[in-house]
Write a protein that binds this DNA or RNA. Sequence first.
DNA 1: TATGAATGAGCTTTCATTCAT
DNA 2: AATGAATGAAAGCTCATTCAT
Lengths: 212, 212, 212, 212
Amino acid sequence: MPEKPPKFRRRAEARPDEVLDAALALFVERGYAATKVEDVARRAGVSKGLVYLYFPSKEALIEGIVLRAVTPVADRAIAEISSFEGHPRTAISTVMRFLVMRLSDPQVMAVPRLIMREVAQFPHIAEMYRREVLDRVIPVLRERLQRGMDAGYLRPHDPDLTLRSVIGPLVLHVMLAEIFGIRPEDGLAFDRLVENHLSILFDGLSAREDTK
Amino acid sequence: MPEKPPKFRRRAEARPDEVLDAALALFVERGYAATKVEDVARRAGVSKGLVYLYFPSKEALIEGIVLRAVTPVADRAIAEISSFEGHPRTAISTVMRFLVMRLSDPQVMAVPRLIMREVAQFPHIAEMYRREVLDRVIPVLRERLQRGMDAGYLRPHDPDLTLRSVIGPLVLHVMLAEIFGIRPEDGLAFDRLVENHLSILFDGLSAREDTK
Amino acid sequence: MPEKPPKFRRRAEARPDEVLDAALALFVERGYAATKVEDVARRAGVSKGLVYLYFPSKEALIEGIVLRAVTPVADRAIAEISSFEGHPRTAISTVMRFLVMRLSDPQVMAVPRLIMREVAQFPHIAEMYRREVLDRVIPVLRERLQRGMDAGYLRPHDPDLTLRSVIGPLVLHVMLAEIFGIRPEDGLAFDRLVENHLSILFDGLSAREDTK
Amino acid sequence: MPEKPPKFRRRAEARPDEVLDAALALFVERGYAATKVEDVARRAGVSKGLVYLYFPSKEALIEGIVLRAVTPVADRAIAEISSFEGHPRTAISTVMRFLVMRLSDPQVMAVPRLIMREVAQFPHIAEMYRREVLDRVIPVLRERLQRGMDAGYLRPHDPDLTLRSVIGPLVLHVMLAEIFGIRPEDGLAFDRLVENHLSILFDGLSAREDTK
DNA sequence: TATGAATGAGCTTTCATTCAT
DNA sequence: AATGAATGAAAGCTCATTCAT
């Protein structure tokens, strides 16, 4: 009778994170619905029961992933936006480049990818995301646009709608790539996207009449 | 016991459409996963078996909805974009206003709402949507931007990336509203969104140096 | 490839009862907790899913069993008690003998056996049993005792407590037999129990002083 | 950081009893099935593992509770019954009043409450209860009834069946109260129950013909 | 002694799909 | 063309029990 290997390995502190890593990988790979809790457990090298020791439900896994990943990014983005004085172009450009740099790390990109694919299914998580990210980032961004307008740097506009013009293209770019597989020939090309977008955003698409 | 005759017998050909209507309503109301085929049947006033007579699977229902709704809109948008000559601002503005007018009809809006919520779950449908809509609209739009650039109406840019700047804000606006419940105080405010966006898109956000 | 036998057999009307019969048999045999819904289905010769077509949950099976079996008996007992005039001894004796006759049918006895074993676990069912049986039988019995007392047939007593003296011995007899396996050598001996009990109940256990 | 020393260290020997106390409280509160071993541990202020050090299984907890509580009562009841000479009415009345006094202590009452609710589920425990209590008390009681009959104090009857008439009402009274929530308006009213029952038991319910 | 992280068999319930009628 | 009874695979979750520490 061969020796059975020890069943246990105590790593209480690391475990929840390991489980979350496994879940993230699988959810991105095959989607939330198609992933069984047992798969997550197997991937994390633990038993099904252990997953439920740390997370009360399968849905809590997605919640945990999003919460873990998203808050720091939001914090950073807010800090970045707020810190800059002067022309908002600098602030927005910096934040956007920072975001893009972070997103270029596939490990990091996995989360927006997941959010994009699944969040709409889970009102609970959508709400959490709104609370943790959108409700914090949007006001800061809106206020920054307002200040830029008040200071005469930006043309008059509705800041609440303008922020859709600021962020929307980035969101659509990721959606096209992740959901529909439509991306530039040289990959995600985040850098080029941002440069192209910022140029349009601030200077407009129209050829200047005086330079025409 | 005399048979109570139906007042008038529905033409059989209308049936699939009625099933699709019922499915659309329910999918939007409670989501695809939470909707049972039996619910769809009941709502359409037919039996479960009949649904399967017209559609081979539950997924085929979503497919049918998207296909039915999306192709005409794409056709129309393509025609619109292509037909305009001169400054592309006119073409893009017209298409966007047309889209927005259509989307303001809740009946029509239901479909993008559904797509937004569910399409990511179904690679099959995502692919179909890409094929039927994106692969047809994107090239036309790209080419129009290219022409505008060639003709000197538009500043130099990468048309492939620029179209994200054109469409992205609209997509984000709908997402914020539908998924996260974030919308302007006066409702969806599509008109104001489009005006604000078009102004930025073509003239930029920056105050003109010469007018400063 | 051998012919697969037809999967279906349509007997919609009989099915719920067949399922209940199977459930009753198994619950009595091995207890509620130890019986899987799948076992019930197999015993009834149907699929697991069918059970859930007629009964929303496993617990609903017990509920269904009790409800089906118990209401008619309660009805009959009430009618019996109410109908008799004169000395309540006759009424009570008749009812008790009727009950005992019914209980001697193992098919019928199965239900009290089940109630005795499981009902305490299910507040929901206990409540239903109280509502359907106890709340209907107890007032009738109490009132009968009261009338017997008013008419001078019975010595003064508290009818509410007395009915425990009337019914209790029967209950204990069944409990001893079913739960603890303690029963007279000649089996359940319901008849002898009832005669013995009725004699004590009405005439007392004490030897009459005047006959001593 | 200095260790906060426990005020006094519980003697290890008290532990099993404390665990049993916790288990009893929880089993009565929410039932055996709904109580997790971990709950018991927490309530007892020990770890889950320790419970298993003292009791080999969850079922052993119930067994321990019943065993601990029931033997002394049985012993006492047996002694009481045996000790009395003369009219068995005195013996039975005394025992019954003693029982009732004990049962009025909620701490004590908890055990019959538990037995009533759960014992039927556990053949093992039912058997133990039969062995420890019923097999010891019943013969004594039966023999006492027999002696009372032989001595001419009691009318002729079958002592084996009569003891059901003696004990049954008490059992039913507790069942109605505990399982179905049916009890006299002034609470359990054990005293009144016993007086009412003893009067019927010995003197019968019928009005004496000669006093009528 | 004492802990509590870890296990995993087991069970209820759901629902898309089938097909006899 | 139409029905709806019947199927059964599939998956989330629980919790008594174990054992490395």
